[in-house]
Design a protein around this nucleic acid. Structure first.
Length: 298
DNA sequence: GCCCAGGAGAAGG
DNA sequence: CCTTCTCATGGG
């Protein structure tokens, strides 16, 4: 199960050999994360688990390079965060066999991987995401980190900040958050932060355990203020490892109607179809479909 | 001015 | 259970 990775370090750079089914644009520009920025050379700079890095990938020799990371960081963060131990080739073949239509989307976004993101950060991010667009979501999260978060460190000429803790956010007022331009979502952040503080952050962390079923995690997430079915599914998929969740947003509605002919507003029919057609990898299928409908021309 | 964006909550059927 | 309205903000 556990793959043995060939690692090399060179200065402040970590190199991982023989990484397949991997494309930085597909991974970082498919709407699952909001804290990575593309550089002119095609690499991406960002931060996860308090560690700012820059990541590049060479398609020809299949080498993944992480600038600012060492072997210990790879084992503690990046190996899991980038979901490197999962065989996406196998998953893609399985999905294509079950449903040739999704095969078209898989061919288009073949390098997508589902990141294993921080739970609290993902909860905040998708609270902000509702009825919002991706460029503005990124701005809001960046602003929230800079105005209320603690400094994580300097890297390649930029200062990186963590998102504010639940304690910090629970103690904040709507006025404190006003500069972040979150709109009506600000009160959801504060109320959810109070809930997390009251229940304990462990209650949220525990939802990522294998002993908690996908459905149980989904229901528990909906208990947080401002978390409905769509946001709960995103958190379960992007931070809790529940790969069968199938978040349905305006884009997925569009693609399900266009590619499968399902009635435009029939969410239950879409969810049912996803369970039937994609099963335990519904969330991965959803990301290929989302990337396809948001990026393919015409 | 209008419509839209990785929607949710409240009110009223 | 369902439907409809409202909630800030900024970009096209």
């Amino acid at each position: 199960m556990e793959k043995k990775w060939k690692l090399e370090t060179d200065g402040g750079k970590l190199m991982v050999a023989d990484v397949a089914d991997f494309d930085l644009d597909h991974i970082f520009d498919c709407g699952q994360c909001f804290r990575w920025e593309k550089n002119a050379d095609g690499s991406y700079s960002g931060i996860a688990f308090g560690k700012p890095v820059r990541i590049s990938y060479d398609k020809d020799d299949r080498v993944l390079s992480i600038y600012g990371a060492d072997v210990a960081d790879f084992e503690s963060v990046w190996r899991t965060y980038l979901d490197l131990d999962r065989d996406y080739g196998q998953i893609k073949r399985s999905l294509c066999e079950k449903d040739p239509v999704v095969g078209k989307a898989i061919e288009f976004g073949q390098g997508i991987r589902i990141l294993n993101q921080e739970k609290w950060e993902t909860l905040l991010s998708f609270l902000i995401s509702q009825n919002n667009n991706i460029p503005r979501i990124k701005k809001c999260i960046h602003s929230l980190a800079e105005t209320m978060g603690e400094k994580a460190g300097d890297f390649e000429g930029k200062t990186y900040y963590n998102l504010p803790s639940a304690e910090r956010l629970a103690a904040a007022s709507a006025t404190d958050l006003a500069p972040c331009r979150l709109g009506y979502r600000a009160k959801y952040l504060i109320e959810t932060a109070k809930q997390v503080r009251a229940h304990g952050i462990e209650a949220l962390e525990h939802l990522g355990s294998d002993t908690v079923s996908s459905e149980e995690a989904f229901e528990a997430l909906k208990g947080y203020c401002g978390v409905g079915p769509k946001v709960a599914n995103c958190i379960a998929l992007f931070a809790l490892g529940k790969f069968d969740r199938f978040p349905i947003d305006v884009w997925v509605k569009k693609v399900m109607h266009q590619m499968y002919g399902i009635a435009e507003h029939d969410m239950s029919a879409m969810a049912e179809f996803a369970t039937e057609a994609f099963g335990e990898y519904g969330g991965i299928a959803q990301q290929y479909l989302f990337y396809y409908i948001t990026h393919h021309g015409a």
